[in-house]
Design a protein around this nucleic acid. Structure first.
Lengths: 266, 266
DNA sequence: TCTATCGGTTCATTATTTGAACCACGCCAG
DNA sequence: CTGGCGTGGTTCAAATAATGAACCGATAGA
């Protein structure tokens, strides 16, 4: 293990629970020698990755991190920020992965990846056009937004005229509540016969949902547990996606798949 | 020089001018051996401080930086973020240093430091109450805001009723224009007899002024060149202050004191 | 095809990191 | 007041990790 990794790994020790750490705190958490830890801490402080409180001598995350994050925000496009995560997710799931952003009342594609070689693929030409209630992404978004947005979406004329069945507000609200509880939304042959999907929300710096990430797959490739498996995989990357885009996951959001949450929501 | 500093120093090579760097780019910029550079780059990539483009193999700033910056924003108070810079500035200037934020039409104190031992000190009890035109901070703020704010401030009834002399809009606009050109605002005995100050704006992530930093000093301690000297010192820290708070300095702002800018503005 | 340049790798040499012991300070209980 | 304990921080021989000249393979142009 390189000294670089060891030193930078120290930064990950700083959290909401432990925003300030003293030398011995870090020493205990890492199990490394005190002298080593001290040298790493001071090295990180010298370049501004940490700051030391003059009074308590405790360390906290430093200004260089904020400075570099600003540089990244200015020089790296939103697409680049999520590309590697989405690509990896697509490879691991073996399915089509989408990340979309709300514009008006549509979820428009930011980036998508389909890095597998199954001969059967999901077509997504019309992605983003269906009303929010019809897609897993849309439901994931609505479930983690203020209810005001749901009312507005219900009142949107385009939503109403789309398709034959006008959604029942109570049924929609009930489903969104389940989605919020278990942490992800899903669809099975609802929008298009043969296409299923699971989706989670992506949050911005104010911890508000502003985008979604979804996995779409042919229902034919999905056995009984496929949806749950893909949901678990998707949720395990949710925090990475949100944080790569500079966002923060609200503390009350279910971020890991568990059988308990699954049952509790149904 | 520790390997930690060497490796993390590589991150500073990434800029608006060079957002993506290849192995040999970095090698040339640093003069270090290619193997060394490569190991550093891959070490930084492994922990997410850099990302490598799958196609071009060029490196760019990675998601871990953004993630940690979010953590810092959530766990370190605004005051802590600037404390060390302001403290250092106060020590170096040997005067009272203020950082204030606009709330309504007042600049309210966020933090101040007076780390010197001169017997003569500036009182600042009423700081934040005078109208924006009367303080260097207020003028610094207005000079780097949209002119709409100036109009609103001029129309603000409290502004109008304060003091005897109602400000001449044209004179104010002319002064603000000079301030914008040279990069800082100054006052000499205008608000209170015996008190002078210099001030610069602080910008947020959208590169809009949202706060100010100022140095206040007794006019008695200020010779002919004191204002310019303090302004030069203040401006040299301006970028650090803005970036420590997660902001970005607009590219067209004068950020270093020069005799040319000083002359051009007057 | 030949050459230059790119990213990346290897392995003996070298220099840096490491850690047990040590120091100084502040705090608390007796 | 004092002695013990827990801090943060330092030292220097020993151990280990970083280094760099040479090398590899791929790619793009001339």
């Amino acid at each position: 293990m390189s000294t670089i990794s060891k030193a930078l790994g120290l930064l990950d020790l700083f959290s909401e629970a432990h925003p300030r750490l003293g030398l011995t705190d870090v020493q205990r958490m890492t199990g490394r020698d005190k002298a080593t830890v001290h040298r790493h801490l001071t090295a990180l402080e010298e370049i501004g990755f940490l700051e030391q409180d003059a009074g308590t001598r405790a360390y906290r995350l430093g200004p260089a991190i904020t400075r570099l994050a600003g540089m990244r925000a200015r020089t790296v496009a939103e697409v680049e920020m999520v590309r590697s995560v989405i690509d990896a997710l697509s490879r691991d799931a073996g399915e089509l992965v989408h990340i979309s952003r709300l514009q008006g009342f549509d979820l428009v594609d930011v980036y998508h990846a389909e890095l597998h070689d199954h001969p059967v693929r999901v077509s997504f030409d019309a992605y983003g056009l269906p009303p929010l209630f019809a897609t897993a992404s849309g439901k994931a978004y609505l479930a983690f937004s203020t209810s005001g947005l749901l009312d507005m979406a219900l009142a949107d004329p385009r939503t109403v005229q789309e398709g034959a069945a006008r959604p029942d507000p109570h049924a929609v609200a009930a489903e969104l509540s389940q989605i919020a509880k278990r942490g992800y939304a899903s669809n099975r042959d609802t929008l298009r016969i043969g296409v299923s999907s699971v989706a989670i929300p992506v949050f911005d710096a104010s911890a508000r949902a502003f985008a979604t990430c979804s996995i779409a797959y042919p229902t034919s490739r999905g056995g009984a547990r496929r949806a749950a498996d893909l949901a678990a995989l998707l949720m395990s990357r949710g925090r990475d996606i949100t944080e790569a885009m500079g966002g923060a996951v609200p503390p009350d959001v279910q971020t890991i798949w568990t059988p308990e949450a699954e049952r509790a929501a149904s």
